[in-house]
């Protein structure tokens, strides 16, 4: 998987599982020295504030380890609900699907070589 890790969440997670995911993923990034993490949530039907917080945590934690996190494939209903809930996943990059997520990570890596930090694509 080159410099990127891909995680596909296929079931609705309860809290303990989500926390495990967070811990495992951060471990994995450290072990592999991955420069990017893709989290595919296209099969997830509910993202509540807890799950949203986990996604945000993963993004911040991996960033400290010099890897960017992209959440891909969010369902329209989930996006609308998150906005209404008041959660816009600040600091988490998003993409429509895995392919585009990869492309986004690749451009971020390329940019890294060219210039210093650029967070222009961050979600507000």
């Amino acid at each position: 998987m080159g410099p990127f890790l891909l995680v596909t969440i296929q079931i609705d997670l309860y809290d303990r599982l989500a926390l495990n995911l967070e811990a495992d993923l951060v471990q994995k990034v450290h072990q592999t020295g991955a420069r990017g993490v893709l989290i595919d949530i296209s099969a997830v039907s509910i993202v509540d504030s807890f799950m949203g917080r986990i996604l945000g945590n993963i993004a911040s934690m991996t960033r400290v380890l010099d890897a960017e996190t992209v959440v891909v494939g969010m369902q329209p209903a989930v996006a609308i609900t998150l906005i209404e809930l008041g959660l816009s996943l600040k600091g988490v990059h998003t993409a429509l699907d895995v392919e585009r997520g990869m492309a986004l990570l690749q451009t971020k890596l390329d940019l890294d070589y060219e210039m210093a930090d650029d967070d222009a694509d961050d979600i507000e």
């Binding site: 509910i46 609308i80 609900t81």
Partner: peptide
């Protein structure tokens, strides 16, 4: 589906 998601969330 949208209202379902809102309710369940």
């Amino acid at each position: 589906i949208v209202n379902q998601t809102k309710l369940i969330t």
